[in-house]
């Protein structure tokens, strides 16, 4: 049985023929669309390595059937930088050494982008830690991750205040 769906992936509309309804968004990205930045750590919603944004919200792509997301707009790690220009969060992750092996990093970054957009954590380190707890990092780079997100939040806040003033 063939199903065709259409997705907007990193701003580009893609019409996709799904030969199997069992395909998850994660496997679609990695195995069919050659977008391998999104990682599979557990495939069961328990590690966060596969985090992507779907219609602007962070979710675990391993627990999302592609066929159910017909029409969705998806952002993956490949769509975060603008050309050679890194997103401030990416720069902050490098500066704060918010990773070691790097395998969880795309998921951490997508999760952090989602967290910033959700607007619940602000510049509160404790809320950032809680909000980033859906992304395991076995190397233990949590301190750098928290510092990186906090720095970007503080910059955003300062920018907002400047604009208001």
């Amino acid at each position: 049985m063939n199903h065709s769906i259409s997705l907007t992936v990193n701003g580009v509309r893609r019409d996709i023929a799904l030969t199997d309804p069992r395909v998850t968004l994660l496997d679609l990205l990695r195995e069919q669309l050659d977008l391998t930045g999104t990682k599979k750590g557990c495939d069961r919603g328990q590690c966060g390595a596969c985090t992507i944004l779907v219609d602007g919200r962070r979710i675990n792509s391993c627990l999302a059937l592609a066929i159910s997301h017909d029409g969705a707009s998806i952002t993956t790690i490949e769509g975060v930088a603008r050309g050679d220009e890194l997103h401030p969060l990416q720069t902050a992750f490098i500066a704060h050494d918010g990773f070691q092996c790097g395998f969880c990093t795309p998921g951490q970054l997508m999760s952090a982008l989602g967290l910033i957009d959700e607007g619940q954590a602000g510049c509160d380190a404790e809320r950032i830690r809680e909000g980033m707890s859906g992304n395991l990092c076995r190397c233990g780079a949590y301190a750098g991750i928290t510092d990186a997100v906090l720095e970007v939040q503080q910059k955003l806040k300062a920018e907002k205040e400047r604009r208001v003033a």
């Binding site: 391998t36 930045g37 993956t76 930088a81 050494d97 970054l109």
Partner: peptide
């Protein structure tokens, strides 16, 4: 800073299964 930082934060670092 890590020399492979940009590759890792852009999803371009190639791990085996990629």
């Amino acid at each position: 800073t890590r020399r492979d930082g940009i590759l890792k934060v852009t999803g371009k670092a190639p791990y085996a299964a990629d």
